[in-house]
Structures are given as structure tokens and as C-alpha cells.
Design a protein around this nucleic acid. Structure first.
Lengths: 140, 140
DNA sequence: CTTTGTGCAAATTCTTTGCACCAAA
DNA sequence: TTTGGTGCAAAGAATTTGCACAAAG
């Protein structure tokens, strides 16, 4: 993999030393838009990076979440998923194929409040569940 | 525990036979507004119902979710939580004390759509994370 | 050298499953 | 007597932890 300086800078900006493994994981998250689980990240990178361990994937994803590089997605009952896109958007998970898709939010400012009832808000999450186009089509 | 006919009716309406355990679990969920985990339900009922098993709690909560008696809450990274209030409202989880609170949603109709981008929506979830009043106060 | 990252194996936690027993229709 | 509910023990899956080695400054 070529060295991507923008990714290195991204990590340094968050106070994270850019190791080979960390760069690979960040690279994968940046390229895929599938909101992968830790296991999916591991399985995707393992062939090209045989020494990579699942532990390192977990360590790295946890570190990224703590430093605000990415967001935890709690949309799947089974696994935590990860989203490198920290911008204001919603998610949709198909209850058949389990895929997660991004969705635009219309009136963001009404949703992304700073506080409610005296509680200080640091994160806002909106997600939908249902049937995606592909699964609806296959049922016909 | 006294027999609560409204709870019996609730279960029958959803095609569920009202057993002692099921009534107790439904009763607990109706009374507590804490969005408990399966383990919390078990621990709360076990003293009064010593024969109750965690398996039955899981079985029952799963059944309730499938039949629409309650909603799964994915707001805590560790456990699934359960909400007997299936009405349109949002949630807030304090990242310090982990408590989950209900929040009113202002313009519901804008949020609770039937479909987006050709995907059929069956569930809508909005939740916030941050610091609750009590935890903010304690820090001072 | 000293610090920090990595990776294996084991442990932990949450949840589900298999199966035998029990209760109700 | 058949069906379905319960509960124990075991299994399974996701994630974390302890520790030794390796890498980087």
C-alpha cells in the first residue's frame, strides 16, 4: 500500500502514531462505505497483511472511537459497527440482508441539539430499520 | 402479585399465552421506566420469583420483541435494552452513569417516514449520548 | 534503553441452544 | 395426550485482557 499523507495527518491530528496496521485499518474504513464490523475489517485486511491480528483491529477501532476518528454504530443487535464518516447523517439497516446504508437528514439543526432537559448532548444517532431495495425486489 | 387483566389482555392481543413468568416480566417492564437489560429484569424479579431463569427472561423478551409488545433499544454498546413504551419517542443515555432516559421528539412526522430512497422503513430510532443532570452536578 | 504497539492465547460477557421435565388444554 | 413453557447446563459469539515479544524513537 502506498503511503497516504492525508491519512497520516488525520491520525497525527488525533494524537495517534501512524503504524502500518493503523494506516491499513483507516485506509480500509475510508475506502469501504459498508460500516463494517471489527471482524469484517480483519477479514478484509488479513489476506494482504497476514500478521494482522483481530486484537489489533479491536484495539485500533477502540482507539479511533475514543479519539473521535470514527463513530460507533449501534444499529445491529449482534455487532458494533464503525463509521469513518463522522458528519451528520442517518443510517438504515435492512433487516433481511443486514446491510447498512447512509441516509441524508433533512433538517439537521432541529435534530442535533446541544442539550435537552438540562442534559448535555455529545452524540446524536438516527437510524431506521426495514427492507432495502434489493431485498424488496428479490421477494417479488 | 395480583392478576392484572390489562396485562393479560395485552399478551392475548399479541397472541401470547400469559404465564406467570411472562406476566411478571411484563409487569416489571410496565412499572420501571429504566429500559432494563435482560439481566436487570432477571435480577429484579428473581428474589420474588426464585424459580425464574435467565433463559426464560431472554426467551420472553425475544418473544415480546417479535410480537411487537416492546422494542429493542440499541443505545448501549454492551447490552441490548428493552422498552415497553412503543410510542414515538427518543432516548438519551448518559455516558457516565449509563442510565437511559426518554425524550420527547418535536416534529415526529418529519422523522417517522414510511420509506426513504425506495427502502421500506419499519422502525425509527433516535437517541442521544452525553451527560445527564445528576452526573453534571456531581462533577462540580 | 525506554516506551509503545502488536499478537497470541485465555478469559469474560452476553446471548442462544439442546434437552428434559412440567403444566395446561 | 399433546402442545407448549420453563429452566438447567452447555455452547456460541463478540469483545477484552494479560503477557511476551517486537518495533520505533
Amino acid at each position: 500500500m502506498e503511503v497516504d499523507f492525508s491519512m497520516q495527518e488525520c491520525l497525527l491530528r488525533h494524537g495517534i502514531k501512524p503504524s502500518l496496521q493503523r494506516m491499513a485499518i483507516l485506509g480500509y474504513l475510508s475506502v469501504t462505505r459498508t460500516h463494517p464490523t471489527a471482524d469484517e475489517v480483519y477479514n478484509a485486511l488479513h489476506p494482504a497483511l497476514p500478521t494482522l491480528s483481530l486484537t489489533t483491529v479491536y484495539n485500533t477501532l477502540k482507539l479511533y472511537a475514543e479519539r473521535g476518528v470514527l463513530l460507533l454504530l449501534l444499529v445491529d443487535e449482534k455487532n458494533v459497527r464503525f463509521d469513518i464518516d463522522t458528519g451528520r447523517h442517518a443510517h438504515f439497516q435492512c433487516i433481511e440482508c443486514k446491510n447498512v446504508y447512509d441516509i441524508q437528514i433533512e433538517n439537521r439543526d432541529a435534530l442535533y441539539k446541544k442539550e435537552v432537559d438540562g442534559m448535555k448532548i455529545t452524540e446524536t444517532h438516527l437510524y431506521y430499520k426495514g427492507h432495502c431495495k434489493a431485498c424488496l425486489f428479490n421477494e417479488k
